[in-house]
Design a binder for these strands. Sequence first.
RNA 1: CGGGAUGUAGCGCAGCUUGGUAGCGCACCUCGCUUGGGACGAGGGGGUCGCACGUUCAAAUCGUGUCAUCCCGACCA
Length: 578
Amino acid sequence: MKMSKMFVQTLREFPSDAEVVSHKMLARAGYIRKLTSGVYNYMPLMWRVLKKVEKIVREEMDRAGAQELLMPFVQPKELWEESGRWEVYGRELMRLRDRHDREMCLGPTHEEVITSIARDVLKSYKQMPVNLYQIQSKFRDEVRPRYGLLRGREFIMKDAYSFDTSEEGLDKEYKNMAQAYKRIFDRCGLATKMVQSDSGAIGGSVSHEFMVITDTDAGENDVFYCNSCDYSANSNHAISNLAPAIVDGKEYFKETKVIDTPQTHSIEELSKFLNIPSTLILKSLVYIVDKKPVIALIRADKTVEETKLMNAVGGIDIRIASSAEIEELMTNKGFKAEPGFIGPNGMEDITIIADKTVKEMKNFVVGINETDKHLVGANLEKDIPHIETFTDIRLVEQGDFCPECGKPLQVTKGIEVGNIFKLGTKYSKPMNAVYLDENGKTHPYIMGCYGIGISRTAAAAVEAHYDEHGIKWPISIAPYHVVIVPVNIKDELQMQIANEMYEKLLSAGVEVVLDDRDERAGVKFKDADLIGFPYRITAGKTVNDGFVEYKIRETGEIEKVTPQEAVDHIIEIVKNIK
RNA sequence: CGGGAUGUAGCGCAGCUUGGUAGCGCACCUCGCUUGGGACGAGGGGGUCGCACGUUCAAAUCGUGUCAUCCCGACCA
C-alpha cells in the first residue's frame, strides 16, 4: 500500500469528545469516525484490524470444533415472547415496526434465533453435541454509550451456542471454549484473566468473563483475584472470608433497650456517638428492585453488592432508593422518621434480605424507624425474628481473604472482552426446543453460550499497547506489519532502495506500507508512531553507505542494517506470527 | 432516567457580556522554498453560527422552545 493513496486522515489533536486512550488514539489516527452516539464508522485501517481479530477467532473456533453460520440482524417479536425476554429485556432492546406494523427488534444477542433453528433441525441425540457461532454486528441501546469502541451501541461480536444432551457434555464444551478463548486472546497479544462472574440478563447458572487487565481507566469492572491460588472473580460475583471482627456487643450493651442517639444520621456518626466499632451496627438499606422496595441488612462496616442483592430477590432491575422514597416507605408503615433511622421492624411485608454477616451479630445496634433513637443490645431471634433470607450480598474489599486459600485478595480494573455461560435449559425449555433420546423420549437441549466482543477486543488491545506517541499494535492484529519511510522522496537513491524493499516485502506476502508522500520526515515519523506500525524501515542519508534504519515500535529499539537484512528480518518475523 | 456542561468550516477553538458584512490555528487546493521527529512564505476554496419561533431597522450574540453531543451515577461483548 502506498501511503499517498491510503484513505486515512490523521489529526493533529485528540477529538474533544474522546475520554479513554483507545477512543482518543483510534479517532486521532484515523481508524474510526463517529456517525452518531455509540455508533462508529470503521475506516480502512480499523477494518483491517477487525478482520484480523475475526480471523483469529474463526481459526480458533473452527479448531475447537464449532461451525460458523450467520443469523439475521432483525428478529421478530414472537420469538422473544416465547423466551419471555420481550418483556424482560427492557429498553436496551432496540424495537421497531415494519410496514405491516409487526414488531421486530435489532439483535442484541441470538439465543432465541439459534434455539428456533435448533429445534427445527436438531431432532436426535445422535446430532449432538454441536456448537454454532457467528460473527456479526449487534445492537444494544445502551443507556449511556461511552468510551468509543469499548461501549458502543452497535458493535461486532462473535457469539457461539452449544447444544448437548447432558450436563457432562456441557461441562466439556465449556472447558473447550475456555481453552479456545485463552488461545484467541493470547494470539491477539492480550493478557487476560478468566474470572467468575454473575450471569446477568442472559441467564444461566455458571459463567466466567475474560478480562483484559490494563493500567488505564477504561476498565469498567473490578476484578478480585488471589496471588496464591487461581481464584479470581468479578466484583459482582466475588466472595471472601473476613478478618475476625467484634460482632458481639455484650461488653457495650448489657441489656436490650431503646436509647437516644441524637444527630446520628450516618453509621459514622452513630459509631462515634456510641463509641463502638461499626461492626456492632446493623445497617438497613432500601433498594428499589423492579419498582418495589426491598430492605437489605448488612453489618455496617460492609457494602452491599447490588447485583448479588438483585439476584437474591430474583429481580432484573435495581437501584438505591432516594431519601424521599425511604420516608414514603416508613410513612406507609405508620412511622414518621428521618431516613437515617430506618430499621427492619414493622416492615414485615416488605422483602428483607440479610447478608450472612448479620447472622454472626449479637447484642448489636439497629434503627427502629424513630428519629434520634436506636435499639441497642439487639439480637436476631428475639428482636428481629421475621428475617428469613440470609445470603451473601456483600461487596468484597481488597484485603479480604480468598475463599479458596485464605490469602489476602487483590483488586484491579478489567475490560471484559469475552464471556462464557452455562445456560442449561433456560431457553430450550420455554421455547420447547427438544430432541429425542435413545428411548424416544423428549428432552430440552442443555445449552451454553460464548461471546467475544470483536470490536471491544481491538479497542482493549490499544488500551494495553500504547505510549504518548500513539498505538503499539501487537503484530498479529496490526493493520500492516511494517512501514517503509524514504526520508526524501526526491532523493533518487533513497526512493530506489525504498521501492526495492517494498517490492521484495510485497512479493513475500508481507503487509507493507510505503510512505511515498512528499512530506518532511517528521510528519511521516509522527504518523507512523500514531498509526502504530509494529516495524519501521527508514531509508535516509545512510543509504549512501548502504544502510537503512530498522526500528521496533514496541521497544523503540533502532538498528542500522542493510536493506536486504531489514527485508529478511521482517519476512522472518511475519512468518512466525501465530 | 437523575445531576453537570457544550453545540460556530473536516479537527481544535475565539467571537456572545455591550446586537451592526463570521474569525484564528491545523487540515485541504496552487506556487515558491524546504526535506531525519508534525518547517516557512504568498495566494485560494470551504460555514443557512444545531434547529424552530420570538424581540429588533438589524440576531452567532437577547428570549422561549426543541434537538443533538459529551461528562458523573445505575447496565453490558
